[in-house]
Nucleic acid binder design. Sequence first.
DNA 1: TTGTCATATGACAGGGTTGTCATTTTGGGT
DNA 2: ACCCAAAATGACAACCCTGTCATATGACAA
Lengths: 204, 204
Amino acid sequence: MPTDTFYNLNEQKQQRIFDAAIQEFSKRRFSEASINQIVKAAGISRGSFYQYFKDKGDLYLYILQEIGNEKRKVMKQVKALHPNADFFTFYLQYIKVAMEWISTNPAYHEIGMLMEFDDPQLMKELMHRSDDLTDIRELLELDQRRGLIKEELDTGLLLEMIYQLSLHLVKKFYQTGSTEEFVKKHHELILILKDGIVNKSERS
Amino acid sequence: MPTDTFYNLNEQKQQRIFDAAIQEFSKRRFSEASINQIVKAAGISRGSFYQYFKDKGDLYLYILQEIGNEKRKVMKQVKALHPNADFFTFYLQYIKVAMEWISTNPAYHEIGMLMEFDDPQLMKELMHRSDDLTDIRELLELDQRRGLIKEELDTGLLLEMIYQLSLHLVKKFYQTGSTEEFVKKHHELILILKDGIVNKSERS
DNA sequence: TTGTCATATGACAGGGTTGTCATTTTGGGT
DNA sequence: ACCCAAAATGACAACCCTGTCATATGACAA
């Protein structure tokens, strides 16, 4: 919720401020980001900043919202392209598109990563992730009704597992930067989730 | 690597400093922890601190090392008690003991949690976790050789998955504090990992 | 031209941090 | 009782941050 004053600014200036914020928030996590750096990069005075935003958190929420809007736009397209896919198909597609989007917006991605390393309570208030997962949850439940997934399993837990594992792989990718490895691991991961790790032929 | 001066201190004083450090590092993550707070709590002067430790990181490494020693001691006992257990049995036992240890040392646990929310690169240099996982990795590989686990699976990935999922549950436990839920989820998680999520009776 | 209102500015106060260093204290050995 | 090295001290410099506020600027209207 920036002030009216901010929205009255010409687009160029708004963009300059947005870019400066992206730059800073992709370098340092929220709690360590410096307004000083942002105003310097944006070429505005410290005083002006406080005329546009209540404080650092206000700006942060603003850029998260903007990023979220862009992301949602991209993701809706995937959903439209695969209307009847089962969970596994959709998931791999989703991952693929997400990776492409990430590689065109590395800074956005860095911000997301840094959020993982900041005060969870602070970050929780930003609820950013629930949106992402809604589609996947629905698909899981649909597949369960379809009889593709064991009905006794708690989709909530499945969702948590998938999210966590995926997040872990994204983090690793972020550090090593190897896309092949990333995709390969995702496939292996899905295989394990699908069929388990126990060797049936030796069992009982 | 504290200085000789530090080790020359009587045990009481060393302990006071250790306790003060634990207190601070369990409240704020490393990058936000304040030496001022630590010296105040330990009842020593700021100057003395720098006579004992090179800097904040030096102290941090010291306490991590101390905690690691204690933890390793506890864990070795579990291993000795279940010499021939398969992975699943050992894992649940391991989790149980780890939880007990955690509940008697909440502050240590908090420090571990906060580490998850600090600069990964900084934290990586502390390699703390590889130790923990060695036992589990060996057990996984043994079970694979025994024919209990599908031989085509990459134990490295399995280990990653298990570690990440477990860490996630620990984090949740840390926030909600519900032990029952924690144990229950762990059991469900293992079931999924063992047999997968696909409904076989409907398949192919 | 002058008035006025939105906007821009940066100095400032108040708070925090780290690492150093000249000085004082302490306590063991003689 | 004295000496001296080791240890303790806290004031200090240097740096960082945030949020405010009196003042300056600029643009548009009358």
